[in-house]
């Protein structure tokens, strides 16, 4: 068990170092140098020189990389060039929108997908299975931002139940805050729930062909008990894997959906930063996104440990 844990921790560490290196090198590779790139063609030599100093571009590349890393570890992500505020403050301000959105839609997806997938598996080949599978097939095919637009058209423009976009802010109360996240979360959850329910169904059906299921039948367990006591937990292992992989889709989806609803989240921040050529913000936000994907997969690895005793040697 310890060796598994150490191996995972080691992988986590190496992945973080390597991914930060990749991001750093890519940002370094901009045409010209970062300072002149950020200022555009109209910049004078003096302003470029000033920015170079501010960014520390005079230093050696390796030093800069380590300074960046050490800075991030101590919570200092640098100063945004366009906003003139520390990047960590910007990120934090946006994270309180993006993080609840992601968690909300993930929860929603799980709560839809598990019952749907399990029902489809239990009634395999029946009408209800067919309907759930057909619905999920369509759910996968719908682009989430288009679904978001249709939700806006129906619930905001026609029914006027929700506002078409924007965020009230948590200061105006949790209810209002959650209300402005409802449509975004639903549109994000739809494709996730569709994929997940298919994975859950097929994973349970696969598990049901195992020899130990036959053993359970011979013991006199009913089909329902077999699914809940034997198939479900065993089917969870591949589902966990997919859940971890899906997280990166969820993040990407959140960035796009924030644009549909004009939510002031990380997605909006990064697109503004791209148009304003604020490389420091881009670099930090991308690092944060990649970090969260790696972290989630690490957590999934730890969950395996709870589910599967074979790893606990």
């Amino acid at each position: 068990m310890l060796s598994y844990l150490w191996a995972r921790l080691f992988t986590l560490f190496v992945s973080l170092v390597l991914s930060s290196l990749i991001i750093f090198i890519l940002i370094e590779a901009v045409p010209g140098d970062p300072a002149s790139f950020m200022l555009g063609i109209n910049a004078t030599d003096e302003t470029i020189e000033a920015l170079r100093k501010e960014l520390g571009l005079e230093e050696k590349i390796l030093n800069r990389y380590f300074n960046w890393l050490i800075g991030m570890l101590s919570g200092d992500f640098g100063v945004s060039y366009t906003y003139r505020v520390p990047v960590q403050d910007l990120i934090l301000e946006r994270l309180i929108v993006s993080l609840p959105l992601t968690i909300l839609s993930l929860t929603l997806a799980i709560f839809i997908a598990f019952p749907a997938g399990m029902i489809a598996a239990q009634f395999q080949g029946k009408k209800i299975d067919f309907s759930i599978m057909a619905a999920s097939q369509v759910g996968i095919a719908i682009p989430n931002f288009w679904f978001a637009m249709i939700l806006v058209l129906i619930f905001a423009i026609h029914l006027r139940w929700f506002s078409a976009g924007g965020f009230y802010g948590w200061d105006s109360g949790i209810v209002l805050g959650l209300k402005s996240l409802t449509l975004p979360a639903i549109s994000l959850a739809l494709p996730q729930a569709s994929i997940l329910s298919r994975v859950i169904r097929s994973s349970i059906l696969n598990t049901l062909t195992e020899d130990y299921i036959r053993t359970a039948r011979a013991k006199g367990l009913s089909q329902r008990k077999i699914i809940s006591k034997h198939a479900f937990k065993n089917a969870l292992i591949p589902v966990l894997t997919i859940l971890g992989l899906q997280f990166s889709f969820l993040l990407a989806g959140a960035i796009i959906i924030e644009n549909v609803f004009f939510l002031p989240g990380l997605g909006r921040l990064i697109f503004q930063a791209i148009t304003q050529r604020d490389l420091i913000v881009v670099e930090s936000v991308v690092m944060l996104l990649v970090f969260s994907v790696i972290l989630v997969n690490f957590i999934v690895d730890l969950l395996y440990l709870i589910v599967d005793p074979r790893l606990r040697k």
Partner: peptide
């Protein structure tokens, strides 16, 4: 795999 397609696109576009 830790770099979602969108993030790669963001990085490339930024550059």
């Amino acid at each position: 795999f830790a770099f979602p397609a969108l993030v790669i696109a963001i990085l490339i576009t930024a550059i």
